[in-house]
């Protein structure tokens, strides 16, 4: 089977070489918000590791939602997504809820959830999954700052991603950002949503910061809203705020004509 598959990959590569535009699209996946994609040079690199930190421990849900939404974007062509979690994360932040992921736009039929007893196992399973080029995305979720997740381990993940072309989303809950081999590093937090009718919570909103970008600017901050119907992120219009009411007897804008000197 591997010979057949090598042939297919070679064919795909040669086709990709003929079509430069398509190859660029194959190398990246977008998040849907032009400002973010533009800064990243056309979207998230597929063959790379993207680290997503929860800004605070309580932002675990927001970070997981951000990762799930990105995985849904990366695996939009119906490839499978492997989500590797640590047993402790399940106790601490709850189990992944398939109907909730479905509601976000990540099809649970494509999902394989691997649970490891400790961070080392999580990273091992993640690296093993990263070597399988047939996946759409791999989410790796160790808890905290494990010793085993050092520069070497993240470098190993990055190499696996380069070889297979599968994006790795390294989801870091209760962790502090440290140097790693990730192409981009994000900090995600929940943001107040735009309320619907009757003050109901609106679409999931995220406050994300680009902490590190290997090939460009960093330190930018956005407020993104996930529209699950279209499966894309959007930058919402700025929140409406009260403006100063217009004076009754005068024009709203100052008169640009110079005043005539009198007397």
């Amino acid at each position: 089977m591997s010979a057949v598959q090598e042939t297919l990959q070679a064919l795909r590569r040669s086709i990709a070489a003929i079509e430069p535009a398509a190859s660029e699209a194959g190398r990246r996946f977008t998040c849907g918000a032009p400002a973010v994609d533009g800064l990243l040079g056309g979207g998230f690199l597929r063959a790379a590791v993207h680290e997503i930190f929860a800004r605070e421990d309580a932002d675990a849900g927001a970070a997981a939602g951000f990762a799930a939404a990105l995985a849904a974007r990366a695996a939009a062509d119906g490839r499978r997504v492997v989500w590797v979690r640590q047993g402790f994360s399940v106790a601490e932040t709850g189990a992944l809820h398939a109907p909730g992921l479905a509601a976000l736009g990540l099809d649970p039929r494509l999902l394989v959830v691997v649970t490891g007893p400790d961070a080392t196992c999580v990273l091992q399973a993640g690296a093993e999954a990263m070597r399988c080029p047939a996946l759409g995305a791999v989410v790796i979720e160790p808890w905290g700052d494990p010793k085993s997740l050092d520069l070497t381990a993240s470098r190993r993940l990055a190499l696996a991603a380069e070889q297979s072309g599968v994006p790795a989303l390294l989801l870091r809950i209760a962790a502090t950002p440290r140097p790693s081999a990730a192409a981009t590093r994000w900090s995600a937090a929940a943001a107040p949503s735009r309320p619907l009718a009757a003050n109901a919570p609106g679409h999931p909103a995220f406050d994300i910061t680009l902490l590190r970008h290997r090939a460009g600017l960093e330190g930018r901050r956005w407020r993104l809203e996930w529209h699950r119907e279209h499966r894309l992120f959007r930058e919402p219009a700025p929140l409406s705020r009260p403006v100063v009411s217009l004076p009754a007897g005068r024009p709203a804008a100052p008169d640009l004509a110079p005043l005539a000197r009198t007397g």
């Binding site: 709850g94 649970p108 039929r109």
Partner: peptide, 28 residues
């Protein structure tokens, strides 16, 4: 292949234009 446990049209999602009605993480 899920042996017919999943509905053929995917998981039911009510009112796709509305925000998700179910959470990402569930405590049990």
């Amino acid at each position: 292949d899920d042996g017919g446990t999943a509905p053929p049209c995917g998981w039911p999602v009510e009112r796709p234009a509305d925000p998700p009605a179910r959470p990402v993480h569930l405590f049990d």
